[in-house]
Design a protein around this nucleic acid. Structure first.
Lengths: 238, 238
DNA sequence: CAGTGGTCTAGACCACGTA
DNA sequence: ACGTGGTCTAGACCACTGT
């Protein structure tokens, strides 16, 4: 439907992807060798290689030296999860966004939760709690630890007018991130802050971020009830 | 630490990624032109281009014709969510896996839930409920609709000895999938099936799958309590 | 040992956006 | 108009691996 002229390697990728997706080439089926596709499309090997490399990264095919490339047996689907800025999420709902810092403290790592978050003992941490609002209603509770060893500038920032997320993005680009998503029941303090009843189901997203090998921050975002969903998509086109 | 000899384009990718990640090149900073990197690394333009193209796909840089390439302002993080087979998840926990079909019916689409799932009115559907066990305990409730227009073979399958997920993977490769993740409270029938109290927080993963443009299946997986977490990772290395 | 994919080269032409 | 990135070529060498 999109009348855009596809580049050649995209066309090759699409053609092969279609064969796989349609079932014409079942899992285990051997894909034509690169030199065969080269003849078939009348192009150079690099162009074919680009398409096949991309299919391999998408997990649709598996490449074996000396043997060829084969349609992969789908073992796990890898979907792309878009993690948006909270302000953007709120404003996408058409609600006015606001932010309130609840607490800020500096302490040394040593609690079990710190270790679970990946902070070595005695790492100096800044410990922040804050609320994000959509209109009058609490949208999300943020509980965050930032390593002052990795981000010393954070010590001078009160985080009263800027949320830690946007501040960090402006000061410390991440190199790696891990998200953990779970459902949990709001405990009493959490429920009070989110203005829901204790035991209300919440979606909790925990994110750990590293730069180089150093832990930067650990944050738990707690969204009350079903106010929030995460969406992840997969297409082989990349 | 991994003593593997990196390919040249990987090294270039890593070098530039490090500059961005360390903050040495802040958002908006112009990256050396391809021909400059060509000189710097003593390689051809394709090699440089491969690295930059990959960085652009990872969202670390933004490329503009005539202007050059620039460090991107991180807007949304795109993390890769691994969706595993339920049997594999259970066995990874060290528990014996078992499966029980609860119900199976054939009907025509028309309910609001069918429309939300993307099935056109009057599409013939197979409607299945089943339970996945980890040992004696229910691990996950699966409620699934399969379009018989798209997958007519499903009509002959009782799904008593094989779960719909693995069966579908063997019969209908997906071309696109969308996952929606939310927290919810178990309603009475769900709670009974999962052997928890009504109101228990559950993690619900809904997946819609298409092949070509046709909807294949819609499934809701309900995991009780905090028994299950999803993990998503991001690294610019791809 | 032969043939595969992985990687790289030294060019080339083109579309396109900015100056 | 110019210089950028996007794409492609027609070769090449190498490591690996299955026969």
């Amino acid at each position: 439907m999109s009348g855009e002229p596809l580049s050649l390697h995209q066309r090759i990728l699409g053609d092969i992807g279609a064969k796989i997706v349609s079932g014409a080439w079942p899992p285990g089926h051997r894909i034509p060798f690169e030199h065969e596709l080269t003849e078939q499309y009348g192009c150079s090997r690099m162009t074919v290689n680009k398409a096949l490399t991309q299919l391999a990264k998408a997990g649709l095919i598996e490449r074996r030296k000396r043997s060829g490339s084969f349609v992969a047996r789908p073992r796990s689907q890898a979907a792309v999860l878009e993690i948006h800025d909270i302000r953007a999420e709120v404003e996408a709902l058409g609600a006015p966004y606001s932010y309130e810092r609840l607490s800020r403290a500096i302490r040394s790592a040593g609690q079990p939760v710190d270790e679970a978050a990946g902070f070595a003992d005695a790492t100096r941490l800044i410990d922040i709690a804050c609320l994000h609002f959509a209109g009058e209603a609490p949208f999300c509770l943020e509980e965050r630890l930032i390593s002052l060893d990795t981000v010393p500038e954070a010590e001078r920032e009160p985080f009263e007018n800027i949320a830690p997320g946007p501040w960090l993005i402006g000061h410390v680009p991440w190199s790696a991130a891990e998200h953990t998503i779970r459902a949990l029941a709001a405990d009493k303090p959490t429920a009070k802050r989110l203005r829901v009843e204790a035991g209300t189901p919440c979606l909790a997203v925990e994110r750990r971020t590293w730069t180089g090998g150093q832990p930067v921050t650990h944050v738990r975002l707690t969204y009350p009830g079903t106010s929030h969903v995460l969406v992840a998509r997969f297409t082989p086109e990349g």
